[in-house]
Design a protein around this nucleic acid. Structure first.
Lengths: 248, 248
DNA sequence: GACCCGCTTTGACCCAGATCAAGAATGGCA
DNA sequence: TGCCATTCTTGATCTGGGTCAAAGCGGGTC
């Protein structure tokens, strides 16, 4: 199940590759050891479902590498993505037994998990873990509300630009691989997944991406490899304040 | 400022009219006394702005009576409502200095507030207040994600039915004034506010409400007074599972 | 190297909801 | 009792994005 040598279970939580946003960011040594005892890694292949909506969820955890999505589906098949989980994002909710959404691995995925009951016990003993979770949940709430503006009021072109901005920003903060102000990244989503996130059809997504390419806002190599020559321009296209911007 | 005799500041937090969802639901007597010491009431008139997005927010609190809304606005004036605050809902976020959204009193509004710093101090000493807040924030996050499905994938008619369902449900849980299975309530929002919540125009809202009335899904007296003869039917129109339904 | 399969692009057409434009209720106030 | 300002309804028309349909990729694999 776990064959990546960089992810030895002997590493302490403090060494965790995602510790910069992790729940344990402020823990003492002994608390870190307790966290390490209930920690384990899980791997999923691209396309695998991590949990189905309504199923019992026996763990919480963070994404270490890869991308997962949270999705809601209506009886007639219409689907809406309600969350995009990138490395360092938290999954699952203490105090809740069942998943509220489908969680799907969009790419190959590694998660750092904590068994639910022991994690909750630890949370009850160490207040700053609860605080950290509250902070993270408030961040997610802000991101969700920001996305409500995208879904409710933005045009298709603005929606695409908004999504690209978020991915570019998150990607940049992870890899810092920008050359002379340019941002370069690979789209981790199919056109259909982007459509489900944006409340559009995949055809409209494709057309708008083509339009942004024609207008020089982005440059494409193949279908997935994106270069953003001017981030300011992209933010303008997204309809955001150039300075402030998305809080995702 | 405070002339309603039913809201004497001498009442304890345990007597708070909104205590059923309040942060203090599990507090001990001495903690309740501490909460009472930093508690006060605020009144706003319909139309007044409680805080502007970006402004310093020096309190947190709950809605006691009336309705408030959370709103985001783009530079060109497009607005999206991102939260509807009904009695018992919590406002503000511990650990955050500035408001992220405009908070507006839609009707006359009474709030039960706690000064922010003392509240945070108390929260740091009493873990179950932090837990309660985490629970409430997770509920809000679920509601926001549910709303993303409404905004991204539902038709205008379904959107209206969804909004009416939520208001009917919340109203019913407050007043329990249903006669022989019917639900009766007053719409607390203008057509324009509904449009801002649903990502529609006010004309479309008006037309769809008329359509639902013609089809017998709802009955209207005047512009605001609504009767729902069959809640199941309304939920069907909203595109929800008849049994499960919105978790707002 | 030919074939296949999932993903993507592009075109032609259509329709739900936006926009523009009158009016009609409602209700507060003199 | 009538006036005025909101708020709401309804009609006519327009359009952005959906729907349906048909090619174009790559990139595995036999």
């Amino acid at each position: 199940m776990l064959n990546d040598p960089s992810l030895s279970v002997t590493q302490t939580c403090g060494d965790c590759p995602i510790r910069h946003r992790a729940v344990c960011a402020r823990c003492e040594t002994d608390e870190l050891e307790q966290l390490d005892q209930i920690k384990y890694y899980r791997k999923y292949e691209a396309g695998q479902t991590v949990v189905w909506s309504g199923d019992r969820m026996e763990f919480v955890g963070s994404v270490v590498s890869g991308i997962a999505t949270l999705t809601q589906t209506m009886e007639d098949g219409r689907t809406q993505m309600v969350g995009l989980l990138l490395p360092s994002d938290f999954v699952g909710r203490p105090g809740r037994g069942n998943a509220a959404y489908d969680v799907v691995a969009t790419t190959d995925l590694v998660m750092c998990c904590f068994r639910k009951q022991p994690f909750e016990d630890l949370m009850n003993k160490t207040p700053h873990i609860a605080h950290r979770l509250l902070e993270m949940t408030l961040d997610e709430l802000d991101a969700a509300r920001e996305w409500m503006l995208v879904l409710g009021r933005k045009t298709a072109r603005e929606k695409i630009a908004s999504l690209l901005s978020i991915i570019a920003r998150r990607d940049a903060s992870l890899h810092l691989r920008s050359a002379e102000g340019q941002l370069v990244f690979d789209l981790p989503l199919t056109r259909e997944a982007m459509a489900d996130y944006l409340g559009l059809t995949l055809e409209t997504v494709s057309r708008q991406i083509s339009a942004l390419r024609k207008d020089g806002v982005i440059h494409l190599e193949g279908k997935r490899h994106v270069t953003v020559p001017d981030m300011e321009r992209l933010l303008e296209e997204a309809g955001d304040d150039a300075d402030g911007g998305m809080l995702a």
